[in-house]
Design a protein around this nucleic acid. Structure first.
Lengths: 209, 209
DNA sequence: CATTCGAACTTGACACTGACTAGATTGCCT
DNA sequence: AGGCAATCTAGTCAGTGTCAAGTTCGAATG
C-alpha cells in the first residue's frame, strides 16, 4: 500500500524505487486476494507502484514469472508453518490457517497452469513444503491406520486442502457460518482420524522433522 | 487474415455454423483442460470454429458468460452423477470420477472470480448439485458420527474435493502413482469413515469427542 | 576524485485480446 | 412471396504482455 509516488523531494528514491520488487509483490497479493489471479495486470501493478509499465518485467521476467515467485514464496511460508506442527492434526489446522492468512499465495500455489513448472525457487520451495508435510505424517504408523502411511498422508492432505479450498471459494459460508473455521476443521479432523488411530497422542515417539 | 472465399470447403455450414454454441463450448473445454482457464481466448475459439472473432459474443455475452455457462453445465452434470449415489462414500467416488472425466468443468465451477455469480442457470445448477450432495449426506445420523450431520457433509465434501483438486493439479502423481485414483479414494474414504460410523451400514456408537 | 560499468528504470513500439457497434446474410414463419 | 429475428461479418477502440533501445543512478575501480 505504499502511498508514496516518489514525487520529487525524495532524496532516497528519486529514480530508483528502492524496493520495487517487494512493492509489486505486495500489490499483486492484494489484487489476487481480492479478485483472483485472472484480474492481475502487470501494467496496473506498475501504476500502483508509481513506475513505468515495463518496470516489473525487470524483476520478474514476465507475468508467469511474477506468479511463480509468489507461489515459491508461498511454499516457503507453508513449509515454515508446517515445520512447527506438533502432530498431523495440528499440521492440518496450520494448513487451513495458512490458506486463510495467505489466500493469494494459496490460490497461486495450486494453479499449475499459471506457473513456470521448472523454476528452481518454485521446485525447491515445493520440496520444502512436501518434506514438512511428510514429516508431519511420519508419526503415523501403518498398523494404526490400516493402510499405507503414505495414503494416510494423502487422506490428511486431501481433507485439509479440500476444506481450505472450499473455504476460500466461499462454498462453506453456509455450513460453517460465523464459527471459527480452524476450530471447525479441528473438530472434523479429530472425529475422522480419532478412531482410525491417527490422533497423534501416542505417536509422540516420532518427533517432528 | 483470410481472403474472400474464406472457410468454404464446408457445404453444410456456409454462413450459419449450425451449432456454434456447442462448438465453442467444446473447444473451450479442450483448451481449459489442456492449459487452464487463463489460456482461454474468445478469438482463438472463434478461429477454431472457423467463424469471425465476434461470433461467440452472440451466444455468450462475453468471456465471463462463456465460463459461467460452462460452470452451470458442470453443476448439472455433477448433480446428475451424485443423484445416483448409493451412499455417502459412493457419492465421494462419483465426485472424484466427475472431476477426472470433466476436468475443465470442475476447474471453472470452483473459480468464482471467473463467473457471473448472479447468473440464473449457474445458481440453479449449483442448487441442484448441493441438493444432491445433501441427500447423499442425509443417510448419516448425528449420533453415529459424534458431530452435526451438516459437519459430516463438510468433512466428506472436503475430502472428496481436496482429493480431486490435488489430483487434477498433479500433486498426487507420486503417492497415487499408476493406481486407479477412484479406487485409492474409495480406500481412503472407507478407512476414514468406517470407524466413525459413516460406512453406510450402521456402526457402533461411541463416546463423543 | 573522476571514470566506468552495470543494475534499475523509462520510453516506444508491436501483436494480441475483449468488448462494442453497425451492417450483411440466412433460415423460419405467416 | 415478404418480413423478421437470429446469426454471423467487419471494423474499431482501449487495454494488455512483451520486446528492444535508451536513460539515470549508485557504486566499485583506477
Amino acid at each position: 500500500m505504499s502511498m508514496a509516488p516518489a514525487q520529487t523531494t525524495k532524496p532516497d528514491r528519486p529514480y530508483h524505487h528502492g524496493d520495487l520488487r517487494r512493492a509489486i509483490l505486495g500489490a499483486a497479493l492484494d489484487v489476487i486476494a481480492a479478485e483472483g489471479p485472472a484480474a492481475l495486470s502487470l501494467r496496473d501493478l506498475a501504476r500502483r507502484a508509481g513506475v513505468s509499465h515495463a518496470a516489473p518485467a525487470h524483476h520478474f521476467k514476465d507475468r508467469t514469472g511474477l506468479l511463480t515467485a509468489i507461489a515459491a514464496e508461498g511454499f516457503g511460508l507453508l513449509a515454515a508453518a508446517l515445520k512447527e506442527a506438533a502432530d498431523l492434526k495440528d499440521a492440518g489446522v496450520r494448513y487451513v490457517r495458512f490458506a486463510r492468512e495467505h489466500p493469494a499465495h494459496f490460490q497461486v500455489m495450486f494453479a499449475p497452469g499459471l506457473l513456470r513448472a521448472d523454476d528452481l525457487e518454485l521446485t525447491t520451495g515445493r520440496a520444502l513444503a512436501t518434506d514438512a508435510l511428510r514429516s508431519a505424517v511420519s508419526g503415523v504408523r501403518a498398523e494404526d491406520f490400516g493402510i499405507d502411511a503414505r495414503l494416510a498422508g494423502v487422506a490428511a492432505w486431501s481433507l485439509a486442502h479440500g476444506f481450505a479450498t472450499l473455504l476460500l471459494s466461499h462454498n462453506l459460508d453456509g455450513p460453517v457460518g460465523d464459527k471459527d473455521p480452524e476450530e471447525v476443521f479441528r473438530t472434523l479432523a479429530t472425529t475422522l482420524f480419532r478412531r482410525a488411530g491417527l490422533s497423534g497422542t501416542h505417536a509422540a515417539s516420532a518427533g517432528p522433522i
